Simulated assay, not measured.
Amino acid sequence: MSSGFPGSDKRISLQEMVARVPDGASLALGGSFLHRGPFAFVRELIRQKKSDLEIIKQSPGYDIDILCRAGTVRKLRAGIVAMEGNFGLAPYYRKAVEGGTLELEEHACYSLTAGLRAAAYGIPFQPCAGLHGSDLPELNGWKLIEDPYGSQEAVWAVPAIQPDFAVLQASEVDEKGNVRIAGTYHWDHIMSRAAKSVLVVAEKVVEEGVFTAVPEATVVPYFMVEAYAVVPGGAWPGSCWPEYGIDYPAVEAYLEADAGALARHLAKGPELQPQEKGNGQ
């Protein structure tokens, strides 16, 4: 993980941040479905024509779908994948799996979390309950281990999953790079501890005193963060509570099947629009 120091300049542009990601890297993406995903970062991966990527996420949707549509991703480790109730399944993700252009390592959300937890703890595997009767252990070649303390119970061992990068969408950061996330962030938290490096896209920058006043609200401390970029609206067309909700018409427009839909959608990303200075930007 990054070992930055107080006062080190970690703020960079979104374009510079994505340029740090080599082809073939593994990326754990924060958020869930259409909520607080680092979607501006994902779109920039496409613009920079990154390739052969591995994506790790318990509940992806728009992010893996658009990466499959652009031909950017090689492998996915995920639990449930969907565009949520309003939009159903992720169509371009499904086409990629059915067409054999995307390798899928299917998980339950909990088993993927177990693999990330093993990496965070620095151990080779994590015992995981609740998988008995499922085909997932056989599909993935997981091993069943007996309780070494003699209970006669056995549990499945999920191998450690260590992403090259955890990419998180944050509500706010301070100049040092401390990270705060409004709402539920338990998957983001374990990703940040499992990955080799943490990259953050934040809605805004706030004064350091905001963090020191309530230190227990810090989700990722600065010394774990390699770099951050400030992109207001970076989770568009998804939500970032309490700043904004899902842009449903934009998602519908993205899902249009004509050849120009992807290019039109990429051109509307808020990361490309002029931003006013002030308000912590």
Rank of each mutant, 00 (worst) to 15 (best):
Pro6Glu: 09
Ser8Met: 13
Ser8Trp: 11
Asp9Ser: 14
Lys10Ile: 05
Ser13Arg: 02
Ser13Phe: 00
Glu16Gly: 11
Glu16Val: 12
Met17Glu: 07
Pro22Tyr: 00
Gly24Cys: 07
Ala25Val: 02
Leu27Arg: 04
Leu29Lys: 03
Ser32Tyr: 08
Pro38Arg: 04
Phe41Leu: 09
Arg43Ile: 04
Leu45Trp: 00
Ile46Arg: 02
Arg47Ile: 07
Glu54Gly: 03
Ile55Ala: 02
Ile56His: 04
Ile64Lys: 01
Ile64Gln: 01
Leu67Pro: 00
Arg69Thr: 08
Ala70Cys: 02
Gly71His: 01
Val73Ala: 13
Ile80Glu: 14
Ile80His: 15
Val81Lys: 07
Tyr92Met: 03
Leu102Ile: 03
Glu103Lys: 10
Leu104Gln: 06
His107Asn: 12
Ser111Pro: 11
Thr113Gly: 10
Thr113Glu: 12
Ala114Trp: 03
Leu116Cys: 08
Ala118Phe: 03
Tyr121Val: 01
Gly122Arg: 05
Ile123Trp: 01
Phe125Gly: 10
Gln126Glu: 15
Cys128Val: 11
Gly130Gln: 05
Asp135Trp: 06
Leu136Cys: 04
Leu136Gly: 00
Leu136Tyr: 13
Pro137Phe: 00
Leu139Lys: 15
Gly141Asp: 07
Lys143His: 11
Asp147Met: 03
Pro148Met: 15
Tyr149Met: 09
Gly150Glu: 03
Gln152Ser: 13
Gln169Cys: 13
Glu172Cys: 15
Asp174Cys: 11
Ile181Gln: 04
Thr184Ala: 15
Thr184Phe: 12
His186Ile: 14
Asp188Gly: 07
Ile190Ala: 03
Ser192Leu: 02
Ala194Phe: 00
Val201Asp: 06
Lys204Thr: 15
Val206Gln: 08
Glu207Gly: 14
Glu208Arg: 15
Phe211Ser: 01
Phe211Asp: 01
Ala213Leu: 14
Val214His: 12
Val220Glu: 04
Ala227Val: 03
Tyr228Lys: 06
Gly238Ser: 09
Pro242Lys: 06
Asp247Val: 04
Tyr248Gln: 12
Tyr248Lys: 11
Val251Glu: 02
Glu252Val: 06
Ala253Asp: 13
Ala253Pro: 05
Ala253Phe: 00
Tyr254Thr: 00
Tyr254Met: 00
Leu255Asp: 02
Glu256Cys: 04
Glu256Tyr: 02
Ala259Gly: 13
Ala261Asn: 04
Leu262Cys: 04
Ala263Trp: 05
Glu271Asn: 05
Glu271His: 09
Lys277Ile: 06
Lys277Pro: 00
Gly278Glu: 07
Gly278Tyr: 01
Asn279Ala: 12
Asn279Ser: 12
Gly280Met: 11
